[in-house]
Structures are given as C-alpha cells and as structure tokens.
C-alpha cells in the first residue's frame, strides 16, 4: 500500500512542478501572444484597405438561416449568426471603407479571405488569409494574380466566369475560386444591407 502512495506522490510532485513552470511561462508570454495576434489582424486589415489607419469593430446580427445540413461540409448553424465587420477610418477620422473576413468551405479546407471594401461598395483588395487547398491548384488562390482579379469588382460582378460572373477562375480549381468568390459576395450583400439600414 505504502508503495503505491509513494508512486502517486512522486507523480503528483512532478506534475505540480511542471504546472508551476508552465504557469510561469504562460504568464510571461500570454500578453505578447495576444498583442501579436492583434497586430497580425490589424496588418491584414490594413493590407486590404490601405487608406485606413484605424479600425472600429461592428457587429450585425443576422436572422437564423435554416441551411440544409450537409455533414460533409458545413456545421449546422443554429440560432442567430453574427457578422463582424470593421469600419476603416483615415487619419482625419473619416470613414474610408470597410473590411470583413469571408469564409467558405472550398475543395479541401475552409478558405478565409480578408476583404477590403471601398465606400462605393466595390472591392478595394482581398487577401486569402487561411486555406489548405491543393498545392498548385486551389492553393493558387493565395497568389497576388488571383487576388488581383477581385480589385474594383462590385457585388453584381462577383461570380466566377463559369457561373456567368466577371471573376476569372483558377485553372483546374473552379471549386476553390467559387468558394472565395461566393463567400465574398455573401459578405458584401450583408454589408450592403447593413449600410442601407444605417442610412435610413
């Protein structure tokens, strides 16, 4: 009996020391990690909306949409959804545009795109910030060439050419192109609705 108590105690001691050290390191680094994340997000927003120097977070609550549950692709979304966008202000505190993150499942991964929108509801720039699509095909969505195809597009033009839109899709990667384009179009629509509502 004693022997097993001793085993337990030794293990307890070791884990206690380990957690103490980890807590210490975590305390040292957590602030820095948080700051890094903020800086990275800020940089990404600036990249798609270069005129803005300051961003302000806005939230739109969307009515719950009954999407057909597709176990392969989407998580079923229950309850009201939230759409987050940022107002971009320039140095004179005037609004110069909006940014939001569009996201949709592509060919093999969730493709997230940071979108910068001008005041006239055309796209300033986009940047694919997260994807793990097939290298050489879908992954080309993150190239400057593909991202450049979105500049100055408005909401009506936001469809890939195969669906009758103005976005030239990537060779051999229509599904990825479509995911990027449609997710942006969806976000633009929500954004436009939110703007007209505010304008009232």
């Amino acid at each position: 009996m004693n022997y097993f108590v001793k085993l337990g105690l030794v293990l307890l001691l070791i884990t206690a020391i380990a957690s103490g050290i980890l807590a210490f390191v975590n305390g040292l680094t957590s602030e820095k990690i948080k700051a890094n994340k903020l800086v990275a997000e800020q940089e990404a927003r600036k990249e798609v909306l270069s005129e803005a120097s300051r961003f302000e977070k806005q939230t739109v609550t969307l009515p719950a949409v009954e999407t057909e549950p597709n176990p392969l692709k989407n998580k079923v979304e229950a309850g009201p959804r939230q759409f987050i966008y940022y107002l971009g202000y320039n140095d004179e505190s005037a609004i110069v545009g909006y940014t939001f993150v569009a996201s949709q499942y592509g060919y093999s991964s969730e493709v997230k795109t940071m979108v910068g929108v001008n005041l006239d509801m055309s796209i300033a720039r986009i940047k694919v910030i997260e994807q793990s699509e097939t290298p050489g095909l879908g992954a080309n969505a993150a190239t400057a060439d593909f991202q450049g195809r979105f500049v100055d597009m408005n909401q009506e033009q936001l469809q890939v050419d195969k669906d009758g839109g103005a976005i030239k899709s990537l060779t051999g990667a229509t599904i990825t192109s479509r995911a990027v384009t449609n997710s942006i179009a969806e976000g633009m629509k929500i954004l436009a609705d939110a703007m007209t509502e505010e304008g009232k």
Partner: peptide, 13 residues
Amino acid sequence: ASFVTIVDLVMNA
C-alpha cells in the same frame, strides 16, 4: 510535454 508547451508558447510569442 512541459518542454513542448514551453517551446510552443515561446515560439508563439
């Protein structure tokens, strides 16, 4: 595992 977590945190920071 402790050392891995330390590496993870430090690299992240």
